[in-house]
Design a protein around this nucleic acid. Sequence first.
DNA 1: ATATCGATTATCT
DNA 2: GATAATCGATATG
Length: 208
Amino acid sequence: MRRQIAEVKSLLPLAEDFFNRDPRRVARALLGKILARRTPKGLLAGRIVETEAYLGEGDAAAHSASGRTARNSVLFGPPGFAYIYFIYGNYYCANVSCLPDGVPGGVLFRALEPVHGIAMMARARGVSLRSDQDLRKISSGPGRLCTALGITRVRDNGKDLTSAKSDLRIMDDGFRVRRIEVGPRIGITKSAHHPLRYVIAGNPFVSR
DNA sequence: ATATCGATTATCT
DNA sequence: GATAATCGATATG
């Protein structure tokens, strides 16, 4: 009889090198990783199941398309930093900067599968957890996941996501993604046809 | 100074 | 499936 081996889940934070490359590669590699917020009341965490890459030059949909401004300067800075922006008068969206200092690029977090602190995140989102369907309302969408993790521009824009001192980090728990589906990005009008959206195939927590 | 519009979401029909 | 809500960044005069 084969002895059952307890799987040790080491939780390794991603380092700067992980983000120092093309956003398309980072967006793929981020699928399956854990976005985690440390709070005084405990850990809030979700598995990344949907991302979008935003490039520098030539990507009209990217906020970095028309050069560096006060708003988008994080995208032009070193890799592994949080770019948070306010959208539609109501919501925040969270990105991580990619490529070396001086070269713009980033990846938008579009959906998480809740894994830890689910009750707290549900409360932050104002959803009651009665059915499995309600679980999807917690963090399936770029604005929703920011609300769930308490991500705002004032709190988190410019934060180093690779620093041990940061309360917002990205971890690798060893999860292996089977298959990735690629398609056009959502909610944009310019450069709309490029296949820069990545999802874990079959995962029920993707947006839309 | 004013107008437009958006990397969204909740709430309708 | 369609639309209102809501405000800051950006474009235009």
